[in-house]
Design a protein around this nucleic acid. Structure first.
Lengths: 297, 297
DNA sequence: AACACTTTCGAACACAATTTCCAATTTCCG
DNA sequence: CGGAAATTGGAAATTGTGTTCGAAAGTGTT
């Protein structure tokens, strides 16, 4: 049933590709991921360190698998903000002969997890653009929320609670999209009687603020890709000053992870480019509640 | 966001295709299906009687949409047991210039109804205090989101979009719990190229800021109970200065309603006193998208 | 049964896609 | 700070795909 199209000598092409690029992962003892799940596992393992553009590709593929499956190489490259050739290189690093082969992974996955036998449940078609978008946004939020519980790292979470509860003062850091989350975190922490500083960079004083962090303080950082904001810099300073650092981020490629004592991955869906914050807020509230409970006890 | 690749004159190609084959459905009073749902409706209506091979195609497309979306024309043809050219003819009958255009319908559909199918049969999690709260928070968020669509006031929503789109400058006002929402609204508005001022009361300058509001400006206010913050005062000033005022609030008792030209009620659930913001954010994003779309048009 | 018309097939073509290659740039290390 | 290695961008070459077209087979009608 699945398209057998590609036919013949796969292994030949692979060997050739592998031999050519000395730097393929296969040469380093990795084996070519045969399924989408394996690929995800490799990407998230954090054992592979990519340069800038390739990391960009990895993040995009992590977050938009369906776009990778359905688009042409040019479209995917444009959406990921890289050159088509970069995608080919990326595929070859994993031992594939080219992008097309690699894309098959994604196609299989999308096809596999598609409800093939869809009855006739959708009676009403939405005639209204506004409602359609609202539905999409609600759907994205619900998808984000639904993903939280599967594979939630309870251990990391509890370590985060412990570290924050033990801290003398909690610095809450996040910019751009993450700022609404940190604002709410800071507010609820305060309402629970947990003293904290929201590093909002008003007056460009953020660096000076984190310059006051001490070894007994903790940083609660929230950061989403692209990681080009000021947040990593601030957290790096805090790290140098020996503070405990806990992070909520949206992929294992976040530069904050290396600096963090404990971190959680929270992936947010988007609809038409507008990203939900529902999951991050829910996790954040749980953190606040945990810290308040531990402090109170 | 979806690949705009195919570029220019779609309608030209369509007209040409239609004129060429005298027997297109368009000539028979049918219009080209613009969405996958529409196509399904046409196929299932039974009003169209296809010859053998084309019927074969229709049945296959009905039963294997994901294969159509993901395969090449050769693969799809092989799976459906027809010639590639038959697929092209099929597409042209519906008014499309060729198979690629037609396939776009399926791609859109698969992409659109994607990451909901990601739920893996996850084993039940242990009764853990942290997980329990997280569940509660997720539940509250989902409850909030679920309530949006029932009884959503589309008319008010569209009036809000119209007012905001017509405004010279948009002032975004909200404090306490509402502030994270306004922060995200302001950010996304800016990202969409819609100029706006986030009234954040840094330096206690909020009153002075709203003192600058003019009659051609609009205020987007977000306010939740208890209504004891500074927000009502600020909005009152804006109202005196003849600005248009639109409001997102959580009950009909909000003092802002009397001042507003249009308003929406968004009720957020809470869990153990921690309130969700998911619904407000979703509605807010829809507002931003609507305004950006209207401004762009 | 013969005609006119529709439908199907398969090969040739035109086009778009992917891949390769090399120069330019950046990063890393001594 | 300089040189080597790695990484990247972009254009050229190649491969594969979709579309067109004319001939052949099929279908229904007079």
């Amino acid at each position: 049933m699945s398209g057998a199209g590609k036919s013949s000598g796969r292994s030949h092409a692979d060997e050739a590709a592998t031999r050519k690029r000395g730097r393929s992962l296969a040469a380093l003892g990795y084996i070519k991921p045969q399924t989408y799940e394996e690929l995800r596992a490799v990407l998230s393992s954090g054992t592979v360190h990519f340069p800038k553009r390739l990391r960009q590709v990895a993040i995009f593929m992590w977050q938009h698998p369906s776009d990778v499956a359905l688009g042409t190489i040019a479209q995917v490259a444009a959406q990921a903000g890289v050159q088509p050739s970069t995608l080919v290189r990326f595929a070859q690093i994993f031992g594939y002969s080219g992008f097309s082969d690699f894309q098959g992974l994604f196609k299989e996955h999308v096809k596999g997890s598609w409800p093939e036998a869809r009855g006739e449940p959708r009676a009403e078609v939405e005639p209204n653009a506004a409602m359609h978008f609202l539905r999409g946004m609600v759907g994205a939020s619900q998808a984000s929320l639904g993903r939280i519980e599967t594979g939630f790292d309870v251990e990391s979470f509890e370590k985060m609670v412990t570290l924050l509860a033990a801290a003398e003062l909690i610095y809450v850091i996040g910019s751009k999209r993450a700022f609404p989350v940190t604002a709410y975190l800071s507010l609820t922490l305060s309402q629970q009687g947990v003293r904290n500083v929201l590093v909002d960079n008003v007056g460009s004083s953020a660096l000076d603020q984190v310059g006051c962090i001490g070894g007994r303080d903790a940083v609660l950082a929230v950061s989403f890709s692209p990681y080009n904001s000021i947040t990593p810099d601030l957290v790096a300073v805090a790290h140098e000053r020996k503070a405990r650092i806990v992070t909520i981020t949206d992929s294992t490629f976040s530069p904050l992870i290396a600096l963090s004592d404990s971190w959680l991955e929270v992936v947010e869906s988007d609809f038409a480019g507008f990203r939900s914050l529902a999951a991050s807020l829910a996790v954040g509230m749980a953190l606040v509640q945990g810290v308040a409970a531990k402090r109170g006890a």
